[in-house]
Design a protein around this nucleic acid. Structure first.
Lengths: 129, 129
DNA sequence: GTCAAACTACGAGGTCTGTCGTACTATGGC
DNA sequence: GCCATAGTACGACAGACCTCGTAGTTTGAC
């Protein structure tokens, strides 16, 4: 997995280019209830950027950092700094270009997805197997 | 994850009913190169059933058993005994009913998928991250 | 300069996963 | 009954993963 640094947008964190997105990595990144919840909330935000604390995840900040990094290194989200915050956005178009229909199918399969960022899921996206 | 035993088809191994398929479990089952390869070959077989040894995976039999069980318990494949063999088939319709478009998107995203079971991938579906 | 906020780095822990080898259980053919 | 075939059960191991706590960095406000 190569991470390109040649984006000249200031504050943008390194991420894999669209052509190098790996299906196994994307599926692995999505195969976790916490990360699926992050992706769902980002999708529910309708393209808006959210900072890490906006998700109110039931884990510590360092665990949050871990999950956001997994998502970014898999190519699912884009992150850039703004002040002391880090803003997150779904790479919807890149994913649609590389894996057409995949993100849409995953989002459609999510339970309780009311298309709004102000309706946090009660406990978690899925309780696990 | 509940496994139902109330199928009266003889030799059918227990599997989760369609309504109880979990997105996280399905994604986790797909997030492995070996299992993705199994799913790809089953899809390439066009609905035909294949026994476990037909896949010629570069792992031992016990590892193969492990991967087939993960796929079956996630609801991706259906298994039933025939003589000394165990036949495997993709649960295409069940998956399409529960997660519309998901399996199609994953299969479309697979590299080297020539729509034929007689063209085994050279080394693996994906080398990993 | 000082402080708080937001995030990261690092290490540690416990758990899960993928793989193997060996022993074992059907099943079917002779 | 005996044997080969196909697959399972079980234990073991290394490595990856998820989580946490603590310490550190960066940024902006005062």
């Amino acid at each position: 997995m190569s991470i390109d640094h040649d984006q000249d947008c200031p504050g943008l964190l390194p991420e894999p280019p669209t052509a190098e997105l790996q299906l196994v990595c994307v599926l692995h990144a999505l195969a976790d209830p916490m990360r699926l919840r992050i992706v769902a909330e980002l999708a529910g935000a309708g393209g808006d950027e959210l900072n890490c604390l906006a998700f109110e995840l039931p884990v510590t900040k360092s665990t949050m950092t871990h999950h956001f990094r997994v998502l970014r290194e898999a190519g699912l989200i884009r992150q850039h700094r703004r002040g002391t915050s880090k803003m997150n956005a779904l790479r919807t178009e890149d994913l649609a270009a590389r894996f057409p229909g995949l993100l849409e199918a995953v989002l459609a399969a999510l339970p309780h997805c009311p298309r709004g960022a102000d309706a946090p899921p009660p406990a978690g996206v899925a309780a696990g197997c």
